[in-house]
Simulated assay, not measured.
Amino acid sequence: MFRNILAHIPSERPVRPVIEVAIALAMARRSHLDAVAIGYESMGGVGMLVGSGGAAIASAVGAEQERAQERADAAISVFKVEAKLAEIAYGIRSFAAIPAEAGEAIGALARLYDMTIVLQPDSSKSRYDNDIPEAVLFNSGGPMLMVPYTHKGPLDTHHVGIAWDGSRLAARALRDAMPFLMGAKAVTVIAVNEEAGEASSDQLVGHLARRGVAARVQRLAVERGDVQAAILSIAAESNMGLLVMGGYGHSRLHERILGGVTRGMFESMTVPVLMSH
């Protein structure tokens, strides 16, 4: 029931979208909310000191770690003020890390929570914070709520959309989102290019009805490259406040690569999305 929530507070990007959604959820569900911020250590300047002696390098590394920690502390302090005003149960953590280790660290931390809230990446700006959602999706083992960087205010769960293709990942996201679905006033199952199978959208509606969730199906047929745009178009037309979908990816040389629809959602989402992998 999302009693234990983690929020990643960006240190390089706007913090308000995540803070507003996270605190409102904690208040509404009487949840404990922990927030974590990471300051990223840049080793570019340190590399220029190679050959200058161990003491000079150690001093430069220490100074960069301090600056990174200050950036993390500044981000978490904004959350702390808002959490105190909201009188919620919360905890805070901030630390410095090199970018290559930051994603793994927060992915492991997120495994202890019912849900992790992150900010949508912004591909127009090169920031290490952009890498965090992908790390959480693939490494946390739980649901990730990604908030658009243009979002304002709390999460609106009155109308929830389910991107359904009958896959294991879609089923996982559905189960993870059940607390939102059971409290929604309207639920729409979005079936794109649906084929006959055991886990059809009609069968899903019957399954949801047994849980007390009344849902309708909206079917559409589009070209493969237009799936993500079609889902977002339906969400906008129907005034959905939340989308639920599986987070797809594949391995390549021990790295996780986002699938096409998932990547498209990361880049151009216009509504908060709960994803599970």
Results as ranks from 00 to 15, higher is better:
residue 117 I to M: 12
residue 66 E to R: 12
residue 57 I to M: 09
residue 57 I to G: 07
residue 118 V to P: 03
residue 85 L to G: 06
residue 102 A to M: 11
residue 112 L to Y: 01
residue 123 S to Y: 07
residue 73 D to H: 04
residue 106 I to C: 13
residue 92 I to E: 10
residue 62 G to K: 09
residue 58 A to H: 06
residue 114 D to L: 10
residue 60 A to I: 11
residue 114 D to Q: 13
residue 67 R to C: 05
residue 111 R to L: 05
residue 114 D to N: 15
residue 96 A to G: 05
residue 119 L to C: 02
residue 53 G to I: 03
residue 67 R to F: 07
residue 78 V to G: 08
residue 77 S to L: 11
residue 107 G to I: 13
residue 84 K to Q: 13
residue 121 P to Q: 06
residue 83 A to C: 05
residue 86 A to F: 04
residue 55 A to L: 15
residue 94 S to V: 05
residue 124 S to W: 00
residue 115 M to C: 13
residue 67 R to G: 04
residue 116 T to R: 11
residue 84 K to W: 04
residue 90 Y to K: 06
residue 87 E to Q: 15
residue 119 L to H: 07
residue 121 P to R: 06
residue 103 G to K: 02
residue 84 K to V: 03
residue 73 D to N: 07
residue 84 K to A: 08
residue 81 V to I: 04
residue 65 Q to A: 07
residue 86 A to M: 12
residue 116 T to F: 04
residue 62 G to P: 01
residue 96 A to L: 06
residue 102 A to S: 14
residue 115 M to T: 10
residue 89 A to I: 03
residue 92 I to L: 09
residue 61 V to W: 01
residue 118 V to G: 01
residue 52 S to H: 14
residue 74 A to T: 14
residue 68 A to C: 03
residue 96 A to S: 12
residue 118 V to C: 01
residue 100 A to N: 00
residue 116 T to Y: 06
residue 66 E to W: 00
residue 65 Q to I: 05
residue 107 G to T: 13
residue 96 A to N: 09
residue 55 A to N: 15
residue 86 A to K: 11
residue 80 K to N: 15
residue 105 A to L: 14
residue 82 E to F: 02
residue 91 G to T: 08
residue 114 D to K: 10
residue 99 P to H: 12
residue 76 I to G: 06
residue 65 Q to F: 05
residue 63 A to T: 10
residue 65 Q to K: 10
residue 91 G to E: 13
residue 83 A to M: 00
residue 105 A to G: 07
residue 117 I to D: 14
residue 105 A to R: 15
residue 73 D to C: 00
residue 112 L to D: 12
residue 83 A to T: 00
residue 104 E to C: 09
residue 93 R to P: 02
residue 70 E to V: 05
residue 86 A to E: 14
residue 81 V to R: 04
residue 64 E to R: 04
residue 118 V to T: 09
residue 122 D to Y: 11
residue 60 A to L: 09
residue 59 S to P: 00
residue 113 Y to M: 00
residue 93 R to L: 08
residue 54 G to E: 14
